[in-house]
Structures are given as C-alpha cells and as structure tokens.
Computed example of a mutant assay.
Amino acid sequence: MKQTYFTPGPAELYPTFSQHLQTAMNQQIGSISHRSQKFRDLYKFTDEQLRILLTIPDTHGIFFTGSASEVWERVLFNCVEHESFHLVNGSFSKKFYDYANALHKFAHIQEKPFGEGFDYADVEVPEYAELICLAHNETSSGVQMRTNDIHKLKRKYPKKLIVVDMVSSAPYPDLDYSLIDSAFFSVQKAFGMPAGLGVWIASQKCLEKAERLQKYDNMTIGAHHTLPTLWSNYKNFETPATPNVLFIYILGKIAEDLNKIGIETVRKQTEEKAKMLYKFLDSSDAYEPFVKQERHRSQTVVVATTAKPSADVIGAAKAAGMVIGSGYGKFKESQIRIANFPATSTEQIEALISQMQA
C-alpha cells in the first residue's frame, strides 16, 4: 500500500519530485562538474526561484550546506566574537544553544516551557549579545513565533544580528529580509525532498562581521566553508567544494512550481489546512492541541496530545495508508505530530481527519 506521509521530516515528497528527478537523470545532472557553466546556470536558476519565492533581496546571498544543523555552527563561527543570545522553547532551539556552548561562545538563554511560545514583549536581549538566535517554527513542540514579533525584535535591537531557523516552516513565513540578517532551512520538510541539502541565507552585514573576525589573531571562523569563502564563490554561482548538485537542481524546480502557484496561495492553503486540523483537535475527546495559545500554534507542524498511547493512533493511521509522526523526546508516547506542508493536499488532510475520527 502506498503511504501518505504526514511526518515532520523527512516528509511527503512534493508531487512533482519524481518528474524532476527523472529529468535530472535524463540530463545527467548528477555527473556535471561544479566548475562548469551548466552548474553555474543551474545554481543561478535556483537562486532566482528562491529569491522570488521568499522575497530575498540582493543584499543577501544564498548558500548550500549539507544540512540545516550545519548552519548552526557556520553562523556561530562567522557572526559571533564573544556572545550569542538564544530563545529556547524546544529541542531544536536548545541544540542551537548547545552548539554555541560547544564552540566556547558565551551563550545567553531565555527559555520557555516546552509547548509555549515567545511574544516580542517577553524578550530581553542582553546588552553585549551580538547574535539573536530564534526558531520561527520549533519542530519538536509545534510552536511558531509570529513574523511580526521577529521583525519588532530587530527594530528594537537594530545593531544586533538576527538569525531565524525556519527549517520546518519555509517557505511559509513572510520574513522581511531588510530586518532579517540570516535564515536557514533544509529541504526534507516543507520543500518535499529527501534529506541531504541545507540552505543558508546571509546578509552583507553577516559577511562584514565574518571578514572582521577573520582578521583577529586569536579568532577562528572555522576551516570548512567559511562565509567569506562561500560568498567569494557565490559571486560566480559556484561553491567551494562539490555540492549536492542533483538536489540544488530539484530545489530550483520545486521552487519554480511553488512560484507558479504563488506564495500567497501557498500560505493561504497552509493556513486553511491548519485550521481544519486544529478545529478537529479542539472538538475531539480523543485529542487536544498541545500548544494552548492559538497565536503560538504552528501552521506547519501540528502537535496533539492523545488520550490513548500515540503508538495506537500511529498504528491505526498506518494501516489506513497514512504515516504520522510521534511526539518528540519524552512526549513520544503521549503525542503525535502532523506535518502540514505544501506536498499534502486538502483532500489528504480531510482523509487523515476522517481516519482519526474513526
């Protein structure tokens, strides 16, 4: 039986993925040199499509990494001399904070209980913190931070760099990149691809900071793919080392598909599907939304507490041809996570709700 994946990553493949993969095979994309004109054209195309989709200005570069978690290390090395500040309300925002400690940065933390979100008014950034690190969407707990609150934070602290983890929400968040210095995501979630490619968006301000730190005798900004090295290659639409050429190609094609639909339509569809899910959970005796504050509920990863063991719920769904995610960490047996990405249709969400009601 063919399954529909509602897991929060790896997730359901985008409907056109196999078609783009076959085209790539026919064109032998997997064998081309990353120093060839064909690759430069391919990188440029993907760059253009992502710029349209996410409204990324020319002040920001778009770079490729092996994963999104690699960006935690890159951005901390390149943008922090001494102190970073982290908003933590789940497992992935906590890991970003842990990376900062592992790299011997002085990492400040403001923490909320698992399942609670941050409002702009809650946040106090320490005076000497250079980089504000936050998750637009916390994959583990299903909490989302409103983009307006993120923008207000930058306006309050204009001299500090701000980096946004949008791993399990891009392309949904409508970020204003005149206020966002850096953002990153990976392709195995809302872009509907297999894992193996991270995307790092960084501003000229980030580059200037990295170049300044690079000149200090007692500082390292890393050895592997520093921001100045990435940017130097990016000017020619090249990469320092051989990247995942196949996935860069497919990402560009899926971004193009999403652009044909229109990002406003994609966002509207996402919100309509999320509304259906939360309405069902709010009215059900067998489930309840884990995130209590509606303004903090994720539109892309819906987390529910289950009355019976989550394994039973997951097993019944799987028998009906649908795969949903378990809760994260200590919530594995008492919660489920349902991905609401562009690859799943309204009809598939309706089918899942019908199955859960059975």
Score class of each variant (00 low, 15 high):
residue 67 S to H: 05
residue 120 Y to G: 02
residue 176 D to A: 12
residue 295 R to K: 15
residue 143 V to T: 12
residue 275 K to A: 14
residue 236 N to G: 02
residue 205 K to N: 12
residue 76 L to N: 04
residue 18 S to L: 10
residue 331 F to I: 00
residue 148 N to V: 06
residue 324 I to A: 03
residue 43 Y to G: 11
residue 247 F to S: 14
residue 181 D to R: 09
residue 164 V to H: 13
residue 190 A to W: 05
residue 285 D to N: 09
residue 277 L to V: 09
residue 57 P to L: 04
residue 80 V to T: 04
residue 158 P to F: 04
residue 182 S to W: 01
residue 218 N to E: 12
residue 333 E to M: 08
residue 275 K to L: 11
residue 134 L to V: 09
residue 150 I to H: 08
residue 46 T to M: 15
residue 58 D to F: 05
residue 213 L to A: 09
residue 262 G to W: 03
residue 355 Q to S: 05
residue 182 S to M: 06
residue 239 T to V: 07
residue 214 Q to P: 08
residue 185 F to Y: 09
residue 292 K to W: 03
residue 15 P to W: 02
residue 115 G to K: 13
residue 291 V to R: 13
residue 40 R to F: 03
residue 291 V to F: 11
residue 49 Q to M: 13
residue 231 W to A: 15
residue 28 Q to I: 10
residue 183 A to K: 14
residue 121 A to H: 07
residue 174 D to W: 12
residue 122 D to W: 01
residue 30 G to P: 08
residue 322 M to R: 12
residue 59 T to R: 08
residue 313 V to E: 03
residue 335 Q to I: 05
residue 7 T to H: 08
residue 154 K to F: 07
residue 266 V to Y: 00
residue 70 E to N: 15
residue 336 I to H: 03
residue 241 A to N: 14
residue 241 A to W: 14
residue 334 S to E: 10
residue 136 H to W: 06
residue 352 L to A: 02
residue 189 K to F: 06
residue 257 D to K: 07
residue 177 Y to S: 11
residue 131 L to F: 04
residue 165 D to Q: 09
residue 241 A to P: 00
residue 90 G to Y: 06
residue 300 T to L: 08
residue 244 N to T: 08
residue 103 L to C: 04
residue 289 P to K: 07
residue 204 Q to T: 10
residue 358 A to V: 00
residue 176 D to L: 10
residue 195 A to K: 14
residue 140 S to Q: 09
residue 179 L to S: 13
residue 350 E to C: 02
residue 323 V to Q: 11
residue 68 A to C: 10
residue 290 F to R: 13
residue 274 A to T: 14
residue 136 H to V: 06
residue 147 T to V: 15
residue 64 F to D: 06
residue 124 E to I: 14
residue 309 P to S: 00
residue 36 S to P: 05
residue 134 L to T: 06
residue 317 A to V: 02
residue 256 E to A: 15
residue 279 K to W: 01
residue 17 F to P: 13
residue 91 S to K: 11
residue 339 A to S: 10
residue 19 Q to N: 00
residue 239 T to Q: 10
residue 1 M to Q: 02
residue 1 M to N: 05
residue 155 R to A: 11
residue 28 Q to A: 13
residue 346 T to V: 12
residue 183 A to S: 15
residue 135 A to R: 10
residue 358 A to K: 11
residue 267 R to E: 04
residue 165 D to I: 06
residue 37 Q to D: 07
residue 247 F to E: 14
residue 237 F to H: 15
residue 220 T to R: 12
residue 9 G to T: 01
residue 235 K to P: 10
residue 121 A to W: 00
residue 241 A to K: 13
residue 267 R to H: 08
residue 231 W to S: 14
residue 191 F to L: 15
residue 261 I to F: 01
